[in-house]
């Protein structure tokens, strides 16, 4: 097999769960509210409606809109320092049911660890 790719086990969060993962890897899905600061940060509306700031390690030049999924480290209750992110085209995001997703995120945080392969155990 070729080189091993590894990635941290990230917790899928909404705005409300973010503060539980201070300093830990998280994955946050939301819609872009606005980009600012010369491409080094943007703001997203998380699945539960909370406004979350995303700070990027390196500035981006392309304009962002619509749905994004941010992978990074949680900082406090409304900041994620992003390592990377994925921007979804409108064709994928237009009929995305944000409320359903938010309920799924809430559910996966309510299931105890041994039956829940999504949440990091530590």
């Amino acid at each position: 097999m070729s080189e091993q790719h590894t990635s941290p086990h990230r917790a899928r969060v909404n705005g409300a769960f973010l503060h539980q993962y201070h300093g830990k890897p998280v994955c946050l899905l939301g819609t872009i509210i606005r980009a600012d600061g010369g491409g080094t940060s943007f703001q997203v509306k998380a699945s539960d409606g909370n406004q979350i700031n995303v700070r990027l390690r390196s500035p981006i030049s392309e304009p962002l809109s619509g749905l994004v999924e941010v992978y990074g480290i949680g900082q406090g209750k409304n900041l994620v320092v992003a390592e990377s992110f994925t921007s979804f085209p409108d064709t994928l995001g237009n009929n995305f049911e944000m409320n359903t997703y938010n309920e799924a995120v809430k559910l996966l945080h309510s299931v105890e660890g041994s039956h829940n392969p999504w949440i990091p155990t530590s």
Binding site: R12, L67, F88, T91, L92, G93, N95, F96, E97, T100, Y101, A104, L107, L108, V111, H115, N116, P117, W118
Partner: peptide, 23 residues
């Protein structure tokens, strides 16, 4: 390819449901 992002939500739930149901 995932052509509808709701499939991601669905998969998240399926993984949990499968495990709990089997248990």
């Amino acid at each position: 390819p995932v052509t509808d992002l709701n499939e991601v939500t669905c998969h998240i739930l399926e993984v949990i449901q499968t495990r709990m149901k089997l248990k």
